[in-house]
């Protein structure tokens, strides 16, 4: 019994029954397969999170974002600027309690360099209904290349609790032809 000492004193020399041995080998090989699938996806897959990141202070990040907003704002919505930066350009999205700022308008199938950072607490970029989720830290700037492939209006929900107004934090990314 499992609550009594092993009945064989030298239990570590007992042979292992075939059923268990086969299952252990299957379990090990499955682990190896899952491990190499991740590496395979880094080489051949299209969805890999960029690791390009920098330490940044919130003011300098906000300043670069403001420059982009000034240059490329095309209209206003609910008091938020809607920015349409050219494909391939550096796009900034500020996370702050309780806003994603500014709203973005991107072109389908064009790549952009998206810079994410928070100017206060931790937030989380949750692009819906695509369902891509990325943590956003204060003091760290994360740069990723994204290529929108679905047209229309997308929500950016905050997925990390950031204070009592957390559920009011929502932004938009429009994708046009």
């Amino acid at each position: 019994m499992a609550i009594a000492p092993p009945s064989e004193r030298v239990w570590w020399n007992e042979p292992i029954a075939r059923t268990e041995l086969v299952w252990m080998i299957v379990a090990f090989l499955w682990g190896v397969i899952m491990f190499f699938t991740m590496i395979f996806w880094h080489i051949y897959g299209e969805q890999n999170l960029a690791t390009e990141s920098y330490r940044v202070n919130p003011e300098s990040f906000a300043q670069r974002a403001d420059e982009m907003i000034e240059q490329y704002t095309v209209r206003e919505e609910d008091g938020f600027p809607v920015v349409r930066p050219p494909p391939g350009s550096e796009v900034y999205l500020i996370a702050r309690a309780f806003q994603w700022y500014p709203l973005l308008e991107l072109q389908k199938d064009k790549a952009y360099r998206l810079h994410l950072s928070s100017v206060d607490v931790q937030h989380d970029f949750s692009l819906q209904p695509v369902n891509i989720n990325i943590s956003v830290h204060p003091g760290y700037e994360h740069v990723l290349t994204i290529t929108p492939t679905t047209l229309g209006e997308h929500g950016v929900v905050c997925n990390e609790y950031c204070g009592l107004g957390h559920h009011m934090m929502i932004g938009k990314i429009y994708v046009t032809e």
Binding site: H167, M168, M169
Partner: peptide, 20 residues
């Protein structure tokens, strides 16, 4: 899987400046 956030009080965004 449908994108609902954890730790979120209101997925209808009734009090938010815009919705989703």
């Amino acid at each position: 899987t449908l994108g609902v956030a954890r730790r979120h009080w209101d997925i209808t965004f009734a009090d938010a400046p815009m919705g989703f």
